[in-house]
Simulated assay, not measured.
Amino acid sequence: MTRPALTDDRRGIAERPPGGVRRPVTPTARRRKAKGLVTITLFLLPALVLFGLLVLAPILIASYTSFFKWNGLGGFPTQFIGLDNYTRLLEDPVFLGDLWRGGLLIVLSVIIQLPLSLGLAMLLNQRMRGRAFYRLLFFAPYVLSEVITGVLFTMILSPDGGLANQILRAIGLSSLESSWLAEPSTVMYSVFIVMTWKYFGFHMILYLAGRQSIPRELNEAAAIDGAGTWAQFRYVTLPLLGPTIRISIFLSIIGTIQLFDLVWVLTAGGPIHSSETMAITMFQFGFKRTNIGYASAISVAMFLISLIFALGYQRFVMRRDTEGAITTMRDAR
Protein backbone atom coordinates (compact mmCIF):
# COMPACT_ATOMS: atom_id res chain seq x y z
CA MET A 1 0.00 0.00 0.00
CA THR A 2 1.56 3.22 -1.13
CA ARG A 3 1.53 6.39 0.92
CA PRO A 4 -0.77 9.06 -0.56
CA ALA A 5 1.04 12.08 -1.90
CA LEU A 6 0.64 15.33 0.00
CA THR A 7 -1.32 18.03 -1.74
CA ASP A 8 0.10 21.46 -2.49
CA ASP A 9 -2.07 23.00 0.21
CA ARG A 10 -0.63 20.69 2.88
CA ARG A 11 3.01 21.09 1.81
CA GLY A 12 2.83 24.83 1.18
CA ILE A 13 5.01 24.53 -1.97
CA ALA A 14 4.47 23.72 -5.62
CA GLU A 15 4.75 20.01 -6.46
CA ARG A 16 7.15 19.04 -9.25
CA PRO A 17 5.48 16.44 -11.47
CA PRO A 18 7.48 13.68 -13.24
CA GLY A 19 7.70 15.85 -16.36
CA GLY A 20 9.76 18.46 -14.48
CA VAL A 21 7.26 21.32 -14.91
CA ARG A 22 6.13 23.07 -11.75
CA ARG A 23 2.44 23.33 -11.11
CA PRO A 24 1.05 26.78 -10.30
CA VAL A 25 1.46 27.82 -6.66
CA THR A 26 -1.85 27.63 -4.87
CA PRO A 27 -3.42 30.65 -3.10
CA THR A 28 -2.84 28.93 0.24
CA ALA A 29 0.90 28.66 -0.45
CA ARG A 30 1.02 32.33 -1.45
CA ARG A 31 -0.70 33.35 1.77
CA ARG A 32 1.71 31.30 3.84
CA LYS A 33 4.70 32.79 2.04
CA ALA A 34 3.36 36.33 2.52
CA LYS A 35 2.71 35.62 6.19
CA GLY A 36 6.28 34.37 6.59
CA LEU A 37 7.70 37.50 4.98
CA VAL A 38 5.61 39.70 7.28
CA THR A 39 6.84 37.77 10.32
CA ILE A 40 10.48 38.08 9.23
CA THR A 41 10.04 41.82 8.60
CA LEU A 42 8.49 42.39 12.03
CA PHE A 43 11.36 40.60 13.74
CA LEU A 44 14.00 42.50 11.74
CA LEU A 45 12.36 45.91 12.01
CA PRO A 46 13.68 46.87 15.51
CA ALA A 47 17.23 45.92 14.51
CA LEU A 48 16.94 47.78 11.21
CA VAL A 49 15.63 50.91 12.96
CA LEU A 50 18.48 50.86 15.49
CA PHE A 51 21.03 50.22 12.74
CA GLY A 52 19.67 53.12 10.74
CA LEU A 53 19.63 55.53 13.68
CA LEU A 54 22.96 54.54 15.26
CA VAL A 55 25.05 53.63 12.19
CA LEU A 56 23.68 54.90 8.89
CA ALA A 57 22.42 58.27 10.14
CA PRO A 58 25.76 59.27 11.80
CA ILE A 59 27.66 58.25 8.67
CA LEU A 60 25.42 60.37 6.46
CA ILE A 61 25.50 63.36 8.84
CA ALA A 62 29.30 63.20 9.16
CA SER A 63 29.68 62.94 5.39
CA TYR A 64 27.46 66.00 4.94
CA THR A 65 29.11 68.20 7.58
CA SER A 66 32.60 67.31 6.31
CA PHE A 67 31.99 69.66 3.35
CA PHE A 68 31.38 72.66 5.64
CA LYS A 69 33.32 74.85 8.01
CA TRP A 70 31.19 74.53 11.14
CA ASN A 71 31.68 74.79 14.87
CA GLY A 72 28.65 72.65 15.73
CA LEU A 73 26.64 75.57 17.10
CA GLY A 74 23.91 77.76 15.68
CA GLY A 75 21.80 75.27 13.77
CA PHE A 76 22.77 73.64 10.48
CA PRO A 77 26.11 74.37 8.77
CA THR A 78 26.00 77.04 6.07
CA GLN A 79 29.61 77.81 5.14
CA PHE A 80 30.24 75.33 2.34
CA ILE A 81 33.95 74.78 1.60
CA GLY A 82 33.81 71.69 -0.63
CA LEU A 83 36.81 69.36 -0.34
CA ASP A 84 38.97 71.77 1.66
CA ASN A 85 38.74 69.64 4.81
CA TYR A 86 39.91 66.56 2.91
CA THR A 87 42.72 68.53 1.26
CA ARG A 88 43.79 69.68 4.69
CA LEU A 89 43.89 66.05 5.86
CA LEU A 90 46.47 65.17 3.25
CA GLU A 91 48.66 68.08 4.34
CA ASP A 92 48.19 67.78 8.12
CA PRO A 93 51.38 66.36 9.71
CA VAL A 94 49.40 65.26 12.78
CA PHE A 95 46.95 63.19 10.73
CA LEU A 96 49.74 61.73 8.61
CA GLY A 97 51.52 60.89 11.84
CA ASP A 98 48.35 59.18 13.04
CA LEU A 99 48.53 56.91 10.01
CA TRP A 100 52.17 56.08 10.70
CA ARG A 101 51.54 55.40 14.40
CA GLY A 102 48.53 53.25 13.60
CA GLY A 103 50.60 51.27 11.12
CA LEU A 104 53.31 50.77 13.73
CA LEU A 105 50.82 49.38 16.25
CA ILE A 106 49.34 47.08 13.61
CA VAL A 107 52.76 45.68 12.66
CA LEU A 108 53.75 45.14 16.29
CA SER A 109 50.42 43.46 17.03
CA VAL A 110 50.71 41.06 14.10
CA ILE A 111 54.32 40.06 14.70
CA ILE A 112 54.38 40.06 18.53
CA GLN A 113 50.95 40.12 20.20
CA LEU A 114 49.19 37.50 18.07
CA PRO A 115 52.08 34.96 18.03
CA LEU A 116 52.30 35.35 21.82
CA SER A 117 48.58 34.65 22.11
CA LEU A 118 48.89 31.62 19.81
CA GLY A 119 51.80 30.21 21.80
CA LEU A 120 49.93 30.56 25.09
CA ALA A 121 46.85 28.96 23.56
CA MET A 122 48.89 25.94 22.45
CA LEU A 123 50.49 25.71 25.89
CA LEU A 124 47.18 25.92 27.75
CA ASN A 125 45.69 23.26 25.48
CA GLN A 126 48.06 20.72 27.02
CA ARG A 127 47.12 18.66 30.07
CA MET A 128 48.44 20.35 33.19
CA ARG A 129 47.38 21.06 36.73
CA GLY A 130 45.51 24.34 37.15
CA ARG A 131 44.88 24.71 33.42
CA ALA A 132 41.45 26.30 33.95
CA PHE A 133 42.92 28.77 36.44
CA TYR A 134 45.64 29.86 34.03
CA ARG A 135 43.11 30.34 31.25
CA LEU A 136 41.01 32.52 33.53
CA LEU A 137 44.08 34.44 34.70
CA PHE A 138 45.24 35.28 31.18
CA PHE A 139 41.75 36.18 29.98
CA ALA A 140 41.00 38.41 32.99
CA PRO A 141 42.69 41.59 31.62
CA TYR A 142 40.33 41.59 28.64
CA VAL A 143 37.34 41.75 30.99
CA LEU A 144 38.61 45.00 32.53
CA SER A 145 37.44 48.19 30.88
CA GLU A 146 39.90 50.29 28.90
CA VAL A 147 39.56 53.11 31.43
CA ILE A 148 40.52 50.89 34.36
CA THR A 149 43.43 49.47 32.37
CA GLY A 150 44.61 52.95 31.43
CA VAL A 151 44.49 54.24 35.01
CA LEU A 152 46.27 51.12 36.27
CA PHE A 153 49.17 51.42 33.82
CA THR A 154 49.39 55.17 34.32
CA MET A 155 50.41 54.37 37.89
CA ILE A 156 52.63 51.42 36.90
CA LEU A 157 54.52 53.45 34.27
CA SER A 158 54.74 56.61 36.34
CA PRO A 159 58.30 58.01 36.35
CA ASP A 160 58.00 58.90 40.05
CA GLY A 161 57.63 55.73 42.08
CA GLY A 162 56.00 53.66 39.34
CA LEU A 163 56.16 49.89 39.65
CA ALA A 164 58.05 49.47 36.36
CA ASN A 165 60.93 51.71 37.42
CA GLN A 166 60.96 50.19 40.91
CA ILE A 167 61.39 46.68 39.47
CA LEU A 168 64.22 47.85 37.18
CA ARG A 169 65.89 49.52 40.14
CA ALA A 170 65.51 46.40 42.30
CA ILE A 171 67.16 44.08 39.75
CA GLY A 172 70.04 46.45 39.09
CA LEU A 173 68.85 47.88 35.78
CA SER A 174 68.29 51.42 36.94
CA SER A 175 69.94 52.66 33.73
CA LEU A 176 66.81 51.50 31.86
CA GLU A 177 64.46 53.64 33.94
CA SER A 178 62.41 56.00 31.82
CA SER A 179 59.45 58.35 31.76
CA TRP A 180 57.61 55.74 29.73
CA LEU A 181 54.52 57.72 28.82
CA ALA A 182 56.18 61.13 28.75
CA GLU A 183 58.98 60.48 26.27
CA PRO A 184 58.22 60.61 22.52
CA SER A 185 60.77 57.85 21.92
CA THR A 186 59.11 55.35 24.27
CA VAL A 187 55.45 56.32 24.46
CA MET A 188 54.22 54.26 21.48
CA TYR A 189 56.04 51.13 22.65
CA SER A 190 54.59 51.66 26.12
CA VAL A 191 51.12 51.96 24.61
CA PHE A 192 51.72 48.74 22.69
CA ILE A 193 52.74 46.90 25.88
CA VAL A 194 49.50 48.02 27.54
CA MET A 195 47.51 46.97 24.44
CA THR A 196 49.15 43.56 24.48
CA TRP A 197 48.39 43.04 28.17
CA LYS A 198 44.79 44.08 27.61
CA TYR A 199 43.91 42.16 24.45
CA PHE A 200 46.17 39.10 24.19
CA GLY A 201 43.75 37.08 26.33
CA PHE A 202 40.95 37.61 23.83
CA HIS A 203 43.02 36.29 20.93
CA MET A 204 44.30 33.45 23.12
CA ILE A 205 40.72 32.29 23.71
CA LEU A 206 40.01 32.48 19.96
CA TYR A 207 43.03 30.29 19.18
CA LEU A 208 42.21 27.92 22.02
CA ALA A 209 38.67 27.44 20.72
CA GLY A 210 40.00 26.89 17.20
CA ARG A 211 42.54 24.36 18.45
CA GLN A 212 39.95 22.38 20.36
CA SER A 213 37.80 22.12 17.24
CA ILE A 214 40.57 20.18 15.44
CA PRO A 215 39.98 16.42 15.75
CA ARG A 216 42.57 14.76 17.97
CA GLU A 217 42.79 11.83 15.59
CA LEU A 218 44.65 13.97 13.04
CA ASN A 219 47.53 14.63 15.42
CA GLU A 220 47.53 11.00 16.54
CA ALA A 221 47.77 9.86 12.92
CA ALA A 222 50.64 12.29 12.32
CA ALA A 223 52.41 10.99 15.43
CA ILE A 224 52.03 7.40 14.20
CA ASP A 225 53.63 8.46 10.91
CA GLY A 226 56.62 9.74 12.87
CA ALA A 227 55.86 13.47 13.07
CA GLY A 228 57.22 15.20 16.14
CA THR A 229 55.53 17.93 18.15
CA TRP A 230 56.81 20.75 15.96
CA ALA A 231 55.95 18.90 12.74
CA GLN A 232 52.42 18.23 14.01
CA PHE A 233 51.98 21.90 14.82
CA ARG A 234 53.42 23.11 11.52
CA TYR A 235 51.72 20.69 9.12
CA VAL A 236 48.49 19.81 10.95
CA THR A 237 47.49 22.33 13.61
CA LEU A 238 48.62 25.57 11.98
CA PRO A 239 46.92 25.02 8.60
CA LEU A 240 43.66 24.01 10.28
CA LEU A 241 43.88 27.10 12.49
CA GLY A 242 44.09 29.28 9.36
CA PRO A 243 40.48 30.60 9.49
CA THR A 244 40.81 31.47 13.18
CA ILE A 245 44.15 33.21 12.64
CA ARG A 246 42.74 35.25 9.76
CA ILE A 247 39.77 36.35 11.87
CA SER A 248 42.10 37.26 14.74
CA ILE A 249 44.30 39.39 12.47
CA PHE A 250 41.24 41.13 11.04
CA LEU A 251 39.86 42.01 14.50
CA SER A 252 43.26 43.21 15.68
CA ILE A 253 43.76 45.55 12.72
CA ILE A 254 40.23 46.98 12.82
CA GLY A 255 40.52 47.54 16.58
CA THR A 256 43.85 49.33 16.15
CA ILE A 257 42.46 51.64 13.46
CA GLN A 258 39.65 52.69 15.83
CA LEU A 259 41.78 52.82 19.00
CA PHE A 260 40.77 55.68 21.29
CA ASP A 261 39.81 55.19 24.93
CA LEU A 262 42.88 53.28 26.12
CA VAL A 263 45.32 55.79 24.61
CA TRP A 264 43.21 58.73 25.77
CA VAL A 265 43.38 57.63 29.39
CA LEU A 266 47.09 56.81 29.16
CA THR A 267 48.44 59.89 27.38
CA ALA A 268 45.58 61.92 25.82
CA GLY A 269 47.67 61.82 22.65
CA GLY A 270 50.78 63.39 24.15
CA PRO A 271 53.50 64.26 24.48
CA ILE A 272 53.43 66.61 21.47
CA HIS A 273 51.04 64.42 19.43
CA SER A 274 53.50 61.51 19.65
CA SER A 275 50.83 58.99 20.69
CA GLU A 276 47.79 60.38 18.92
CA THR A 277 45.55 58.12 16.88
CA MET A 278 43.01 59.12 14.25
CA ALA A 279 40.19 58.83 16.78
CA ILE A 280 41.99 61.10 19.27
CA THR A 281 42.71 63.70 16.58
CA MET A 282 39.05 63.60 15.59
CA PHE A 283 38.03 64.10 19.23
CA GLN A 284 40.47 66.95 19.69
CA PHE A 285 39.16 68.90 16.70
CA GLY A 286 35.52 68.04 17.27
CA PHE A 287 35.14 68.64 21.01
CA LYS A 288 38.18 70.66 22.07
CA ARG A 289 38.59 73.01 19.10
CA THR A 290 34.93 72.94 17.98
CA ASN A 291 35.89 72.34 14.36
CA ILE A 292 33.14 69.85 13.56
CA GLY A 293 33.67 70.02 9.80
CA TYR A 294 37.31 68.92 9.97
CA ALA A 295 36.53 66.32 12.65
CA SER A 296 33.81 64.92 10.40
CA ALA A 297 36.31 64.64 7.55
CA ILE A 298 38.62 62.63 9.84
CA SER A 299 35.74 60.35 10.82
CA VAL A 300 34.86 59.78 7.17
CA ALA A 301 38.52 58.98 6.44
CA MET A 302 38.54 56.46 9.30
CA PHE A 303 35.36 54.90 7.98
CA LEU A 304 36.71 54.63 4.43
CA ILE A 305 40.01 53.16 5.61
CA SER A 306 38.19 50.55 7.69
CA LEU A 307 35.71 49.78 4.90
CA ILE A 308 38.34 49.43 2.18
CA PHE A 309 40.50 47.24 4.41
CA ALA A 310 37.53 45.07 5.43
CA LEU A 311 36.36 44.55 1.85
CA GLY A 312 39.88 43.91 0.55
CA TYR A 313 40.70 41.54 3.41
CA GLN A 314 37.51 39.58 2.87
CA ARG A 315 38.05 39.48 -0.88
CA PHE A 316 41.70 38.42 -0.96
CA VAL A 317 42.57 36.93 2.45
CA MET A 318 39.34 35.34 3.71
CA ARG A 319 38.05 34.32 0.29
CA ARG A 320 38.36 30.59 0.92
CA ASP A 321 36.69 30.88 4.34
CA THR A 322 33.70 32.85 3.08
CA GLU A 323 33.30 30.66 -0.01
CA GLY A 324 33.26 27.58 2.20
CA ALA A 325 30.59 29.10 4.44
CA ILE A 326 28.43 30.10 1.47
CA THR A 327 28.79 26.65 -0.10
CA THR A 328 27.82 24.99 3.18
CA MET A 329 24.74 27.16 3.51
CA ARG A 330 23.70 26.39 -0.08
CA ASP A 331 24.15 22.68 0.48
CA ALA A 332 22.05 22.86 3.65
CA ARG A 333 19.21 24.42 1.69
Rank of each mutant, 00 (worst) to 15 (best):
V21L: 13
P27A: 10
R30K: 13
V38I: 11
L60M: 06
I61N: 11
A62N: 14
F67L: 12
F67I: 02
K69M: 13
G74H: 05
F76E: 07
D84T: 04
L90D: 01
V94Q: 08
L96R: 13
W100R: 11
L105W: 14
P115W: 12
L123N: 03
T149R: 01
L152C: 08
F153C: 01
M155Q: 10
M155P: 01
N165E: 05
G172V: 05
S174F: 10
S175W: 13
S175I: 11
L176D: 11
S179D: 14
L181M: 01
M188D: 06
Y199D: 08
F200Q: 08
Y207K: 03
R211T: 04
S213A: 15
R216V: 13
D225Y: 13
D225S: 09
G226E: 08
A227W: 11
F233W: 14
Y235K: 08
L238S: 12
F250V: 05
I254K: 03
A268Q: 14
E276A: 09
M282Q: 12
M282H: 04
M282T: 11
F283Y: 15
F285W: 15
F287W: 15
N291M: 05
S299F: 00
F309A: 02
G312A: 00
V317K: 07
R319V: 07
R320Y: 08
